[in-house]
């Protein structure tokens, strides 16, 4: 990101996106303090020290951000997160596929879900080009993963119809 900005020679700061991490940190710290409010002092002390320092740091960053906006060096926008805009649909698509992957892997198992995810995600990113190559690559990788992780390393990966069938056959 920094490289891109430097290449473009831009000095614009997207203050809105810069504030996401500090605001998330503050919200989490407040929630954390709420959960330890009735805990013994000895169980609170580390979090109170670290959390207080964090709040001070975020306040300082907030003041710095206000200064950036006032001097016209930045604006309260989210450009840092969404540029280049042409990749937003692909990125959202990839995120959706990842959520679906996590959601269906317990029922379909590692091998089938990985094949479906690899095929669909790669087709999404390549805009549907090289379909036969992508399908065979996805099949090869998911089968390779099955052989390495489940057969060789005996890892407790989520099992589905394919893993159950293989267990019955071999």
């Amino acid at each position: 990101m920094t490289d891109d900005k430097e290449a473009e020679g831009s000095v614009h700061t997207s203050v809105g996106s810069q504030l996401i991490i500090p605001i998330a940190a503050i919200l989490f710290t407040i929630y954390y303090f709420y959960t330890i409010i009735d805990a013994p002092w000895t169980a609170q002390v580390a979090a109170f020290i670290v959390g207080s320092i964090l709040i001070i740091l975020v306040v300082l960053f907030g003041l710095k951000s206000v200064k950036i906006i006032r001097t016209g060096q930045g604006a309260l926008d989210f450009d840092d997160l969404i540029t280049p805009r042409s990749f937003v649909p692909k990125r959202l698509g990839l995120l959706s596929l990842t959520i679906v992957y996590i959601f269906i892997v317990p029922s379909l198992g590692f091998t089938i879900t990985t094949f479906l995810f690899l095929a669909m995600a790669t087709l999404l990113l390549s805009e549907g080009k090289n379909m036969s190559l992508i399908l065979s690559l996805s099949a090869g990788l998911s089968l390779g993963g099955y052989l390495l992780f489940i057969v060789a390393f005996k890892t407790r990966f989520p099992a589905g119809p394919f893993e159950t069938l293989m267990k019955v056959l071999f």
Binding site: I21, T35, A39, T42, L54, V58
Partner: peptide, 29 residues
């Protein structure tokens, strides 16, 4: 440096999630 410290202390707070080792009180879970 300020961003680095915010990220690091945010990480520390995340690292505090869980039960404490003495009283086993769940915190930030």
């Amino acid at each position: 440096t300020l961003k680095g410290l915010i990220a690091g202390f945010f990480g520390l707070m995340i690292g505090f999630i869980g039960t404490d080792v003495v009283y086993e009180t769940p915190r930030g879970t």
